[in-house]
Design a binder for these strands. Sequence first.
DNA 1: AGGTTATGTTCGTTTCGACCACAAACGAAG
DNA 2: CTTCGTTTGTGGTCGAAACGAACATAACCT
Lengths: 402, 402
Amino acid sequence: MNVPTPGSHLTASAGSRNEQTRRHNLSTLLTLVHHHGALSRAELTKLTGLNRSTIGALNTELASAGLVFESAAQESGTVGRPSPMVNPSADIVALAINPDIDAIEVGAVGLGGEVLSRARRATASVPTPSEALEIALELIEDVRSQLASGTTIVGVGVAVPGLVEADSGTVTRAPHLGWEDVAWGEQLSDALGLPVQVGNDAAVAVVAVAVFGAGQGAANLMYLNGSASGIGGGVIAGGTRLVGANGFAGELGHTLVNSEGDACYCGRKGCLETEVNLNRLHAAAEASGIAAADAVAQLAATSSGPFAAEVDREADVLAHGIANLISVFNPEAVVLGGFLGDLYGARQERIRTGVLADAFAPLGDNVRIERAQLGDELLLVGAAELAFGPLLHDPSGWKAKS
Amino acid sequence: MNVPTPGSHLTASAGSRNEQTRRHNLSTLLTLVHHHGALSRAELTKLTGLNRSTIGALNTELASAGLVFESAAQESGTVGRPSPMVNPSADIVALAINPDIDAIEVGAVGLGGEVLSRARRATASVPTPSEALEIALELIEDVRSQLASGTTIVGVGVAVPGLVEADSGTVTRAPHLGWEDVAWGEQLSDALGLPVQVGNDAAVAVVAVAVFGAGQGAANLMYLNGSASGIGGGVIAGGTRLVGANGFAGELGHTLVNSEGDACYCGRKGCLETEVNLNRLHAAAEASGIAAADAVAQLAATSSGPFAAEVDREADVLAHGIANLISVFNPEAVVLGGFLGDLYGARQERIRTGVLADAFAPLGDNVRIERAQLGDELLLVGAAELAFGPLLHDPSGWKAKS
DNA sequence: AGGTTATGTTCGTTTCGACCACAAACGAAG
DNA sequence: CTTCGTTTGTGGTCGAAACGAACATAACCT
């Protein structure tokens, strides 16, 4: 972007000191190898535009901190001296936790984004905050014991299905968990002696999608996830996640799609979440003689009957809702996760043409619609990204404690 | 924001050279005094966090380039040596042009945001691109002749009611003007020998609102403007304008508000723009015996009859639409311009309570709803901001040509 | 062997911060 | 009313941090 678009520099940010340059460059390098995977020094030079000397110095600093390590050059087959690869050190680990209505899941994710180990425990009922905390701590023990010795844990990231106050790590309101104003992050941090970052699950997921998943490389991205608890979402706009004034932006499940629709618990009616809905799918499946538990797996099974009609209807409404949001965000990619991904799998053409027909003229044409990848690792990787955040922002002065 | 929210540093941006630090600091300083008005050197020191020596040096550089000038300290009444004020130099001028369906308007805006002179010519019919170009050039002559000698024109900003390709300055599609794929920016630049930046009128307006208008200080802001040509809008999110993949984000006039509503030219039905509409107001006004031309002025005049009923209906729909968008963007302020501002003036309580009742629980509570200020200067100031962009981004190496 | 691409090291430049001397305001004491 | 101390801030010099340029050298292909 050579020519600045209007409004690209509204806030006069703080002044930049000389040493911040170093921080920024270290951060850039580490973030690059973390998100992109191993890169040669020559590639880093090109990508950053920095001088070879500088890349060398920065690289040495990161390596001596144990954050990256160099390995032999790849067989390139081209002329010229081979350039050694700079790898993210998988010994640098973030823990990821996802407390949900029916289970607690914990994982360990290495720098580079690989899930190194994980553990999950189903709960008989929706866990209370203290139950969840207890189970999480036990699972963390499990997960840590599976890690190779010599790993360093930089912190913990938590993905919670609810509104979260990021600064304090407080769960303001998680309706499906029944939690309200719980300082879960603080409690966890006290118990572990590690820094803990808490985020909304959809916000966490969209980051994972953007960095490691189907949305890789897209600076403008919409993610919609369908689960038993409704439709959550997140937006990446201009390379940054849409946060909003209170961190609550991106409640995409509550955009209007049908003004004659059912009442939503949010107080309105006809929200995307009330019209495109797992319960409705389950009910229609049973009306067609399909067990509710099999509904998602059987989405494409029948072409007639009440179930197929409901699947068609939900596909149409989803397309309508996506088109509506496209005219607001003008994204280059829309990623669908959870049962929305399955719905898209079963009615791909219907949804795709529906979006095209419905979207404001030029906007829909170039949009990529995709199912989420990463599957059940999505939230873990995203939550780990939360925990990696401070390290990625400022790798200077960081030392692996090992 | 000490704790990074998830996704605040997704893109690994380019490396930072040493001299970019200087550029950034000069940019920060100049942008501060341009947006905020005159500031003392001590205040600049506090705001930027830079050292006094550095502020002094930067300031000297900006002053010798003619971009700012120092003046005597303000009478502060406090102890201590007074700190001289750093003022934006109003001799640095940007030209602003707004071609519209019934007139062409041109203004000259000084650094600091003051409109120094302006000229407007009404047209009998919708101007063709070449007619508009001719008139604009004449008006520019007018406007320039009114400027004090010694002013330097840094560039030209154009606000066009239509889709614009920012990089090339091409008007892709301006339905109400009937323009399509017009390289107006290039033509103007060739004729004037000045750099020209072209932007969508709503995008330009939201920048003006955010920087100098009712949205001052809000990092998350929604602007909705109602005109004869429909409803345009723009969004500031996280201190930056929402741009989208192709620069078309923020088509807020085409969000669904009533799925049983009228057909919209965008291909859907029940868009905000088709439901809240100047034509409908005019028709209802005439049914109540009010001349269409007086409708906007008389919005609050009657409390019964078809006109009042229509005003009520549009207010309700607007509130509904705003609430819907609030759940997506979580802004701290919503600014209404054009006839939407008048509508808000006439039905302030109705709209405010409607938004509160309708918005997703905690999001609506803290939103500030306001009418746009700046009036008919809004587009000029915003377009000028476009033209100032390159200078504000990189003041280094810039010299007033006088 | 020659060309190509890359690393490593030294040196110079840019830029900022720290420090010291000094300046300009207020206010209290003589 | 004058004087002196306190407070706040400017101006200039010096040192430190960081990056880029240049040169020598290393590894690979043809």
